[in-house]
């Protein structure tokens, strides 16, 4: 049984690998593998995140997650601009926007990434990513509009689904939550469809 499942896995991976090999021939500038790769092995980084999750569960009783940070920021701004209205919203009644573990977690992640980039000589300092430029040109307005619109949809989706690529994609899946496996598969299905429309059509 398990060998059959493994074979099916092997087959599906081989098929998608063959598919991406074929795609390579189309246009080099639209193949991400023609741009620089990561500094560290994905297995080292993945194992590090796995161990980090042991520590956050053990010491702070917290799963790793990022998306609620943005809701907290939205709530903080709301409280400053329209406190009465903000306090009446259902979501903020259940999740009062205040300085909490998740809030400082994401802010500190920016600092951690800055130190990592600086130590590895990988400071990008650019407004439009290279691969985007190869496809859509160097207009910051266009890139900014897509990133902003994508962010709106992404946050709305994350709140509806109950988490993001961290909260569902790593913390929920590792606890074998059915919801998280469904959500993360939908993240990649939705993402793959739109990304392929954007870059291959």
């Amino acid at each position: 049984m398990s060998t059959l499942i493994l074979r099916l896995f092997a087959l599906s991976i081989a098929a998608s690998a063959a598919y991406s090999q074929a795609a390579l021939a189309i246009e080099p500038a639209l193949d991400s593998r023609n741009y620089p790769g990561a500094a560290w092995s994905p297995y080292l980084v993945g194992a590090g995140i796995g161990v980090l999750s042991w520590l956050t569960f053990y010491f702070y009783d917290k799963p790793i997650g990022a998306s609620s940070f943005y809701a907290t920021v939205a709530g903080m701004i709301g409280k400053a601009v329209a406190p009465k209205h903000t306090n009446e919203l259902d979501y903020f009644k259940d999740n009062p926007p205040k300085l909490n573990w998740e809030f400082v977690f994401v802010l500190a992640a920016v600092a951690g990434a800055a130190v990592a980039a600086w130590s590895g000589g990988e400071v990008f300092n650019e407004w439009v990513p290279e691969m985007w430029r190869a496809r859509f040109g160097d207009s910051l307005a266009l890139r900014g509009a897509f990133a902003f619109g994508g962010g709106v949809l992404m946050a709305f989706g994350a709140r509806l689904a109950g988490g993001c690529t961290s909260g569902h994609g790593i913390s929920g899946t590792l606890q074998l939550n059915v919801a998280s496996w469904i959500a993360v598969i939908c993240f990649f299905v939705g993402g793959a469809i739109v990304a392929n429309l954007m870059f291959r059509i």
Binding site: A66, A113, M154, A155, C186, I193
Partner: peptide
Amino acid sequence: PNIIGGLLFGVGFALIGYCPGTAAA
């Protein structure tokens, strides 16, 4: 919500090219 939210998230994922955590990175 898991499926509808998940697919919306995915569409946003392709447009932005980052996710909530990796945007911080």
